[in-house]
Every structure is written in C-alpha cells, then in structure tokens.
Design a protein around this nucleic acid. Structure first.
Lengths: 336, 336
DNA sequence: ATGAAAGCGCTAACAT
DNA sequence: ATGTTAGCGCTTTCAT
C-alpha cells in the first residue's frame, strides 16, 4: 500500500504538504494542491488513520457503550448519536454490555486502547464506579439514561420520575385502585425513579402505599413471569405498569396465554414506545421518552467538552416525557 | 498517560518485555512477569492500540457495513457477527448505509483508513462495483445477503429464490389465484431472487404469469402505498406477498386503514421474521431467514481468510430458508 | 530469557 | 507557501 511518502514523491513535494492537502489546513497553492490530488488518485492512496492519530492524539471517534442495541429504544438513541457525531466529523463505535458490568469493563478497556476521544455511557450498574476509569485516563464522558455514584459528571436522561408520576396518575384517574408495577434491577437508577414516581402518584391519590412492586430485569421474561404471579395474587390488580417496552411485551404474552383481553380484563401501560417502523398498529399507552433527542443532546455535550466550547461545571440535562394514551388502558372492571 | 516505557522503567525491564507480558507471547520468566504486572497495575497502564497496530499491521477489528441496524433482521445478523468476532479475539465496527451508495462509499473509506483487517459488506447496490476498492487495497471481504458484479468473491446469503418459491407455493396450494408481490429495488439481488422464486411457483401452478409485481424499497412506505394501489386494482388479489418485514408492516397498516381483516379479507405472507423479543403475538406467515447464522458464517469465513485456514477459491455459502405458517394466511374468499 | 535498534505512517513544531 | 526534523507508542528483527 502506498503511504504519504509515495504520494509526496510522485507529486514532487514534501509529505507534510500532502498532509496539508488531505486535512485541508495550512497554506497550499492551488497548483500544488492539484498536483497532490492527482498523485493521490493515481496511487489510490488511502491515508492511514493509525499514523495520523498516533501523532495528533485525536481519533475523531466516540465510543457508545449501551445495554443492548437489539432494544429499539437504544437503536433510536444510537441513531441520534451517530447522526450528531457524523455532522461534526466524528464517527462512533458501539459496544453492547447486556447489562453486565464485566462486559462493560471489557468494552471500556478496548475502547480506551483504541484511543477514542470520548465516551457516551449507559452504565450497566450504578454500583460500579465506572467513572474512575475515565478520570484516571482523563477521557471525557457523558452518562446517558441513568445515574451513577457521585455527581461530578455530565449526564443526559429523561425525567423518569415525572414520567412515571404522570403515567400512574392517568391510571389512577381512570379509577384503578390496585396497580402492579414490574420494573428492572434495583441498581438501575431509571428503574428506581420510575417506581418512585409511581408510588408518589399513588400516595397523592390517597391509595395505600403497599401497591405491589416487582423487581426483575428490563426484559421480556421478567414481564412474563411476574404477570403470572400477579394474576394469582389477591386482590388482583386491575392494571399493570411496565417500566420498559420489553417488560410490556412479556406482560402481553402472559395475558394472551391466560386468554385475558386488554384493556377489558387488564389495563397495561408502559415506558418507552416501540418505533413506528416495526409496529403494525400502535396499541400501548406509554410514557414516551425522547430517545433520538437523548442521543443527540449527549453527543453535542460530549463534543462541546472536547473543544473550546466546554461548559464550566458538570452538566445535567433532563428531557421531558410525554404520555401517549392509546388502547391498552381503560377504566377498570370489577376484579373477578 | 503512561506508556510502555514508563511501565518498563518502573519494572526495571525493557519495553519489549512489557510487550511480551501484555500480549502473552515470547519467553518471560514468572518473576519478571510478576514485576511487570505490578507496574502495570500501579500506573493503571492502558496499552495504546494505535502504536501497536501501526507497527504490527493488524487491528483485530472487522468492519460490518449494512443497510440499517434499525431493522431487527440486521440487528440479529449484527449480533451473530459480533459474537463470532469476539469469540475469536476480534472486535467490530458498524456502519449504516441506508441503502445509499454514497454513504456506503464514505464508510468503506473511513474504515479502510482505520485499517480494519477485513470487511463484511451488505452491498447498497449491485451496480456499484464496491469490490474494486477492496481489491485495490488488498483487504479481505465477505459479501452478505446479496450478490454483486463478478463472481470471484466470498459470500453468504439465504436461498431467497427457493424460500420465495416455497412461500408462494404454500399460498397457491391454499387456492389463491391472484397474488400481489411487493418488493425492493431492482438493483438488489435479494429483491430480484424473491420475485423470481415467486414467479417460478406461479408458473408451476399453472397461473398466468402476469401476476402483479410492485418494485419499490424495502421499507414500510413501499408496503403501504402499493397496498393502496392493490386494493383498487381489478381483479383484486386475494393475497399479498411482502418480500421483507418492513414492507409487510406497511401492508398491514394499509389494510387496517381500509378496515380489512387478515386473513379473512386478505392473506399476507412475508420474508424475514420479526424477533420474538419485540413481538407480542407472532402473526405473520413467513419465510424465515437464519439471520444470526448468516452473521456467524460470514464472520467465520472472513476470519479464516485472515489466517492460515484460508479456503482456496471464493466460497459461496447459501443458507436454507424455513416457512413458518401462522395466522396471517388462509384460503381465499371470493374477491369482492 | 531478555534486550537494542529501527521503523510502522503520520503531523506538531519550528524553520525558511 | 513549503520544507526539515523529530517523535507519537508500539513491535519486528536480530542479538546475546
């Protein structure tokens, strides 16, 4: 493969001049630029980013570490990140942690080795002090969706507590008196915030505070299994509050298996909409997060940190949540 | 940030010895290894992969360039690629082309600059001779899902023609006499193969060969718009054959808008299953591709090429397709 | 079992 | 407007 030296020789200039043409900086006369570009084409020269980055100490690459790109919510966040990064001349590399601190740590190490300029992190667990590794390595990072220990970091997340409050209030106004909540792990701040918002709404509505709350994972199995438990419980709740989209799908599957109808036999509401692209007929009443916007805002903040536009202290951006009422919820019937 | 030199100094050895410890190759005594590892921990040393790759000419990174990670089919392929790559010590970086040759070309250039060891490519268009760029740069690549010009390249794809043949035959056996096909762009070999398989089945069944075929994009809009056209056409088809999952969703939305029931008023069959994770209640009769397997097989082939296990000539791996019958299809009623 | 020297490809810093 | 020099951090090659 030809290198910058070969191009320089063919064009009759010094390597640094070729570099100036490629990166479009410094002074190069039009005539010289022409000659260099011809040489580049002739040799089909592709600059080696390793050499460039090693010397310049910038890779123009950002790392996005999230739980699972299979979840349409995260896919949407990722597109927001990718689009915004590209607009600013950056590229991204993605890692899936599957909520495992071990996988997260492996990816962070790998990406640090690759010398990414900054990180966008959805922490696998709030208990892992993943921020240490960044601070030691002096790499800027932005935390998405969740909170971690300490408060001296940049973050972008939805107002989960308020969203849950509004979604629960809506159910309560319909007249539901007993609502089951199925949520994620207790070391996930979003899972906790959503439960907190729910309980707050229940309290305001004057309900007894021992509404059933089931802690599991943000996945379909959790939704499925706990719904089976809920259906056996007495008094049986008239509504189920799923704190993410996968849990909601598990809930629906369990209800279908029991031949129960939604919303006639059970109301179901959820966090996180499913993208229109993969939905035949939007059905769930949801607290809809601004997924694309979350990715965009976080990336803008990170890129600002990398340049001169860095804000002073740690930034905390909280995005509002909208409630969208659809057909999965209605006034309660009397429990059987 | 500390470098290999700092670690070497602290451990009282030469940098090359540190390198040997990190990469676990060459002879290092246990005692020396111990000292080096202590030094690494003490300094929180993270090896710089840029220096390493620049010298060794290997990045242990593969590029996956596909149309759109938002499509659950590609998400599944990507997980197959990622898992297989990781098992073999490789990492992947992903680029979305959105079926645009320009975006594809931009990503290929970027990834070549990053010196990836090999490419997994879902070509945006069969007309673009993207293989040129690889051959010039002498980077191994494997083509997924589709065919491109020439035949001297490695590829992994589903047997689209046979899958379409079986899916169409199934509809024909139910008694459908007029079936509309909605498919992707004609420069997409998979779109063409599926139409070809369909027409072949129609011919075998003795149907007139002017079954309506609508060429568009592999997206929801195409499914939606053409379904509206189909509903106006005379004689009206009794079944719609969607050649991918997004088209199928567009079809369903259009039918819902017209208050038509599936399968009572119209049978619908599709290529590509939707993942169980995001499906409440599997409904479509589908030709199901082995998405994960496609990613896995392609990655194994690419990694074999990179090592000594390289097969001789170009390999062409064709995966079988299964038909799964569900509730979206039935015997036809008389057309209105 | 360990090390010295050289160089991968590029650009920062400093000329001219 | 263009060039020279040096060096980013690592590993290949060759010694010992």
């Amino acid at each position: 493969m030809p290198n910058i030296h070969d191009v320089a020789k063919l064009a009759g200039v010094a390597p640094i001049t070729v570099s100036r043409v490629i990166n479009n900086n410094g002074y190069v006369s039009d005539k010289t630029r022409q000659r260099v570009e011809t040489a580049i084409d002739e040799l089909a020269y592709v600059p080696n980013a390793l050499g460039s980055s090693l010397r310049s100490k910038r890779t123009m690459t950002l790392a996005l570490v999230l739980s699972d790109i299979t979840n349409p919510f995260w896919t949407t966040v990722a597109r927001g990140v990718e689009d915004t990064a590209n607009e600013n001349g950056y590229h991204i590399i993605i890692g899936n942690t599957d909520e495992s601190p071990k996988k997260q740590s492996d990816y962070l190490t790998f990406m640090l080795q690759k010398q990414v300029d900054g990180f966008l992190l959805v922490p696998a667990s709030s208990n892992v002090t993943s921020s240490d590794i960044f601070q030691r390595q002096k790499v800027p990072f932005v935390v998405l969706d969740r909170q971690i220990l300490g408060n001296d970091y940049d973050s972008v997340r939805s107002d989960s507590q308020d969203g849950a409050y509004k979604l629960a209030s809506y159910l309560l106004e319909l007249g539901h008196k007993r609502i089951a909540v199925i949520t994620g792990r207790s070391d996930n701040s979003a899972a906790k915030d959503r439960v907190r918002g729910f309980l707050q709404a229940a309290k305001v509505a004057g309900l007894d505070e021992d509404q059933p709350v089931y802690w599991g994972e943000f996945n379909q199995e959790t939704g499925y299994e706990f719904t089976r438990v809920i259906l056996q419980s007495k008094p049986r709740p008239t509504a189920i509050f799923a704190t993410n989209n996968f849990i909601a799908i598990g809930v629906m599957r369990a209800l279908n298996d029991h031949e129960l109808h939604v919303p006639e036999d059970m109301s179901v509401v959820a966090f996180d909409d499913l993208p229109a692209a993969i939905t035949i007929d939007p059905f769930f009443t949801v607290a809809s997060q601004q997924a694309y916007e979350m990715g965009k805002k976080a990336t803008e903040l990170l890129i600002a940190r990398l340049g001169d536009a860095a804000p002073k202290g740690p930034q905390e951006i909280i995005l509002p949540i909208d409630i969208i009422v659809r057909r999965s919820s209605s006034t309660p019937l009397d429990a059987p």
